[in-house]
Design a binder for these strands. Structure first.
Length: 169
DNA sequence: AGTTCGGACCGTT
DNA sequence: AACGGTCCGAACT
């Protein structure tokens, strides 16, 4: 396991609250939804300029994504924490354009493992960078909502902003 | 139409 | 060995 080293934590202010982003030397490693108890970033005196720049990109992208638009440029992502299967799943998610949706089964198929349907669900739930890696655009096959780790209200909200019609909220 | 039930299937812990 | 952000068909209402 690579040293548990330097994760720089920075907050992203949005109309929806303060997200918490953490960066490794490789890129954005996780993005956390706002919490009830305000999550303060670790005291971080010296944040490398490179990471500050990534953070600007993250901030811009997140704000765009939250308003239902294409996030545009993303910072480099450090998804090394995931398994190989998870990373391939997350990669597939990134190909879903805003306003479009796929089912868990469709993702599984695109991975060449049509039966790994539930595993895809698991991978979505383990996604460390929600919204930017659009796990919310994956619905159940019956056109129903499916689940969402960050809370179903978020899933509904995000989809609606992208113009996707979802069953009553 | 809609709902519920039960198995099958796969990666993760 | 057990659990999920599933899926499908069958058997109901």
């Amino acid at each position: 396991m690579n040293s548990k080293e330097l994760l720089h934590e920075l907050t992203v202010l949005t109309p929806d609250g303060e997200f918490l982003a953490s960066y490794s030397a490789k890129g954005l490693a996780s993005l956390n939804f706002p919490r009830k108890t305000k999550q303060l970033p670790r005291e971080d005196t010296a944040v490398p300029p490179k990471i500050m720049q990534w953070h600007r990109t993250t901030t811009k992208a997140l704000q765009l994504a939250l308003s239902g638009k294409t996030p545009g440029e993303l910072p480099p992502l450090d998804l090394s924490a995931g398994t190989e299967f998870q990373r391939s799943a997350w990669n597939a998610l990134r190909k879903i354009a805003p306003g479009k949706t796929r089912s868990y089964a469709e993702i599984a198929q695109s991975l060449g493992q049509p039966k790994a349907v539930r595993a895809v669900g698991g991978a979505c739930g383990a996604n460390p960078v929600p919204i930017l890696v659009p796990c919310h655009r994956v619905l159940a096959a019956n056109r129903k909502l499916g689940g969402f780790s960050g809370g179903l209200d978020w899933k509904i909200r995000l989809l609606k902003r992208e113009g996707v019609k979802v069953a009553e909220g």
